[in-house]
Write a protein that binds this DNA or RNA. Sequence first.
DNA 1: CAGAATCCCTCGTGATACTG
DNA 2: CAGTATCACGAGGGATTCTG
Lengths: 114, 114
Amino acid sequence: MKKNENREPLCDDIAGKDCGLKRVIDTVGGKWKIMILCVIDRNEIVRYGELRRSIHGITNTMLANSLKELEADGLVERKQYDEMPVRVEYNLTEKTKTLIPILLELKKWGEGNL
Amino acid sequence: MKKNENREPLCDDIAGKDCGLKRVIDTVGGKWKIMILCVIDRNEIVRYGELRRSIHGITNTMLANSLKELEADGLVERKQYDEMPVRVEYNLTEKTKTLIPILLELKKWGEGNL
DNA sequence: CAGAATCCCTCGTGATACTG
DNA sequence: CAGTATCACGAGGGATTCTG
């Protein structure tokens, strides 16, 4: 069993939760979050109803839950305008914009290798 | 609603299955696969029993299932030596080695932003 | 040693209806 | 318009036992 000690390890803690990689997979994993990020990324600012119509098959339950988690994790921002009727807009945070290029690499890799 | 048309889109198909990004998330997602890849990456060649002992909490069911899926997706290779007792070794495939640097970027991003 | 088989259960996901 | 509230289901995950 040869060791790879001169390389940076993929995961320091085999247990899981403290691994940055696992944290990313957990926060953007699930059935809809990537798609939600996709739609917001393309339009910069998107309203709730637009998201629901853009993502085929998603329900209110899942869209609302996913958005709340993405907001709690600091990946999207929610802005509410108390007009009548109410208007709510979502956009990516700055840190999410630095994540996008990495996701694009992953996407290319997936297209070439899966 | 402003368009981001001069940027490469994160996901071309909102529906999901054909998006390279979603394919990657699906194949390395789940509870254990990242950890399995981590252990193989660090040791280059790992036996089944070593994997089970290295990954705290994993059961035979999950380890065997995950390895089978990773092998079916072409991410790990299985080599069986018909000695007595049987010896089985796992290693990363070449294409997985090109995935590792991207995962390392993701890991760094997660450490800095989650 | 390296799994397979079986049974079991949690929880992510979903359908439907309702509200400020 | 932008969500909540319930209830329900099925798949992913897990404990235990068994085998070539």
